[in-house]
């Protein structure tokens, strides 16, 4: 009998004999209360409306790694665009029609001899206005500290094993710029069009913790 646990009673268990999971609610933190207070004051004083706040959240949620993947795929097929991207990644992203607001973006290129990795050791700076919200691990102290101390060990845990002749360049987003990795185009993709190439570009490959998929 799979659910016969003679060592303890079923009291407080679900009908199938498993413990109920605790609610995922905790008390508000100081800063959550602060955010609510400031937001309510701004609404009361007519500076913003709740609809505008909701619309901004929708706008941010609509941004996704697919935007960055489109930029990367364009750079893979268009050498002039790639040159403009490496010169000014904000302008190149806007050229493709992405609304990235005031984002100051730098693209760093992976080559046969260089692998780039993005981190923000101080907080969680991320090119949100192009790629959307960062993955949870990007904001952890473990990633933020280990990415600058032992980037190759971190990369191995993500499944990226780099040969010794490849230099790792870590980019710590400490101030006003944000970074996106331009991964190297995978071998065997000569026949693919731009949309098919974009489907190979993962979020992690634009952070540097991954490589693009291969077809």
């Amino acid at each position: 009998m799979p659910h016969d646990h003679p060592s303890h009673s079923h009291e407080g268990m679900s009908p199938s004999g498993h413990p109920y999971r605790a609610d995922n609610d905790t008390a508000l933190t100081y800063w959550q209360r602060m955010e609510i207070a400031v937001r309510e004051l701004l609404v009361e004083k007519g500076a913003v409306t709740p609809e505008e706040v909701a619309r901004q959240i929708d706008t941010m949620d609509a941004r996704s790694p697919a935007n960055g993947a489109a930029v990367v795929a364009r750079a893979w097929v268009d050498p002039d665009f790639k040159a403009r991207l490496l010169q000014d990644a904000s302008a190149a992203s806007r050229e493709m029609g992405f609304d990235i607001g005031p984002l100051r973006l730098i693209a760093v290129e992976n080559t046969e001899s260089v692998h780039n990795l993005i981190v923000c050791t101080l907080c969680s700076c991320y090119p949100r206005n192009l790629l959307g919200l960062p993955p949870d691990w990007y904001k952890t102290r473990a990633y933020r500290s280990r990415a600058v101390i032992e980037p190759r060990a971190v990369l191995r845990e993500f499944g990226v094993e780099l040969p010794d002749h490849v230099q790792v360049r870590v980019h710590d987003s400490t101030a006003d710029m944000r970074y996106v990795v331009l991964p190297a185009r995978p071998a065997g993709t000569e026949g693919l069009d731009e949309a098919e190439l974009a489907a190979l570009v993962t979020r992690d490959s634009m952070i540097g913790t991954g490589l693009p998929r291969t077809p």
């Binding site: 101390i149 032992e150 980037p151 790792v168 360049r169 980019h171 710590d172 710029m177």
Partner: peptide
């Protein structure tokens, strides 16, 4: 504001994972 490039050897000394790898930061 400048982007400054440091070698891992400069930052971590003998404890560097790979001395010739680098970290760039805006200072």
């Amino acid at each position: 504001l400048y982007r400054v490039r440091f070698t891992m050897e400069e930052v971590w000394g003998a404890a560097a994972e790979t001395p010739t790898d680098t970290v760039d930061a805006e200072i």
